[in-house]
């Protein structure tokens, strides 16, 4: 499926490119991705810069948003709704779930619209198309880090001392990125063909918050539904975040396995689908 084979043997220093119809099911063409790695960096930088340009608070918005959401939800669900939080203070419990959820929802919506949003680019310039969903799922990581800084403040307020488990946080952030990239590949490629995606996606993201243990603990989910529930990769991400951030938080790691399988299948399928659609992006978009 290679569009670009960098082969410098044949003609001195000149880069050689062979243009041919795509072959094979899953040729990631990592060579050209590597060649364009600076573009990934610069697109992430652009997304972050543009988001906070001409704002008074600037990057502080990345902290303000989850904190404000946490306060409102705490008032509604903890104070009024009396939702349990498995032992830890509800605001800490909630924020540890909002942290990855904000990332996942942003990465999904930015990743999903990354191709259609850059339509003029796709029909005018060549670069590995994979770069667009890739950089779009990576740029909210910057917001995640800033929101995490705010979380440290929250922990200090409640005198919660993090344990060694916090070192595993990047692992779960990586799982979140992998999942959102995998889903973003499907969504973005489908969006090029079917503009219906533009209507479905915000709905799905909204729904996602309620089928994931953000506002409530997993213990609230009926036993009989747990197996189905565990297929949702966001469950693992959120549970992982809580386990890493809240001392003494109990997690059933067996529940991770189905969702890891799901992520793997979506990712491989997404790469194959994306690659097969890629050749017609410029013609269809």
């Amino acid at each position: 499926m290679s569009l670009l084979n960098v082969d410098q043997r044949s003609v001195g220093l000149l880069p050689h490119v062979r243009i041919q119809p795509a072959k094979g099911l899953l040729d990631l063409d990592l060579a050209s991705l590597w060649h364009y790695r600076e573009l990934i960096y610069i697109l992430v930088w652009r997304d972050v810069t543009v988001r906070y340009k001409q704002t008074l608070l600037g990057v502080a918005w990345a902290m303000f948003q989850p904190v404000a959401t946490m306060l409102i939800f705490t008032a509604v669900f903890s104070v009024m709704g009396k939702i349990p939080s498995d032992g830890s203070p509800y605001p800490v419990f909630l924020y540890a779930g909002l942290l990855p959820w904000f990332y996942v929802s942003q990465a999904l919506s930015r990743g999903g619209t990354s191709l259609v949003g850059e339509a003029p680019l796709i029909s005018k310039v060549y670069f590995p198309r994979l770069i667009l969903p890739l950089s779009a799922t990576m740029s909210p990581l910057v917001d995640l880090i800033l929101a995490f800084v705010a979380f440290l403040g929250l922990m200090a307020w409640y005198e919660v001392v993090p344990t060694w488990r916090i070192l595993f946080l990047p692992l779960f952030a990586g799982l979140a990125t992998t999942f959102t990239l995998a889903a973003g590949l499907w969504i973005s490629a489908l969006y090029v063909r079917y503009r219906d995606v533009g209507h479905i996606l915000p709905m799905l993201i909204q729904l996602g918050m309620f089928v994931s243990p953000i506002l409530y603990p997993v213990s609230k989910v009926p036993e009989s539904w747990r197996a189905l529930y565990a297929l949702n990769p966001v469950v693992s991400v959120v549970q992982g975040f809580r386990w890493a951030l809240i001392p003494g938080f109990q997690v059933d790691f067996v529940m991770f396995l189905p969702s890891l399988g799901v992520v793997f299948v979506i990712l491989i399928g997404g790469l194959i689908y994306f690659r097969s659609m890629e050749r017609t992006f410029a013609d269809v978009i």
């Binding site: 670009l4 000149l14 062979r18 243009i19 041919q20 119809p21 060549y126 050749r279």
Partner: peptide, 16 residues
């Protein structure tokens, strides 16, 4: 030739 879209069949080699 500028690799924006792919050919259905055939090849092109570009040096540079």
């Amino acid at each position: 030739l500028s690799r924006i879209t792919q050919p259905t069949t055939g090849t092109a080699d570009i040096y540079g």
